[in-house]
């Protein structure tokens, strides 16, 4: 068996946590696509019915904020990896 020094293991742990944080943010793709889809549909609806603009905008913002939450979870986990794993 090869004995690895604690310093080396610490460096590996930090590197792995940083790579994990970067990988976790891949989830942002889904949130971005979802939000863009909602915005596009809202533009279509406003073009079709300009008088309902206020209601459509509010509904779009609420829907986007809910669609965003998966991305936000990934972001929280990335921050946890950065803040708490790397001591």
């Amino acid at each position: 068996m090869v004995e690895l020094s604690p310093d080396f293991m610490d460096t590996i742990l930090r590197a792995a946590a940083m790579i994990g944080a970067g990988l976790a943010l891949i989830a942002g793709i889904g949130a971005g696509v979802g939000q863009g889809y909602a915005a596009g549909k809202a533009v279509e609806s406003v073009a079709r019915q300009p008088e309902a603009r206020g209601l459509i905008t509010t509904t779009m913002l609420v829907g986007q904020a809910v669609a965003e939450s998966t991305g936000i979870y990934a972001f929280v986990f990335a921050l946890i990896l950065l803040f708490f794993i790397i001591l």
Partner: peptide, 15 residues
């Protein structure tokens, strides 16, 4: 999910 959504948005913004 309810609390993490708010926390993540506000904390991410402040970071």
């Amino acid at each position: 999910s309810h609390s993490f959504r708010l926390f993540g948005n506000v904390f991410g913004g402040s970071v």
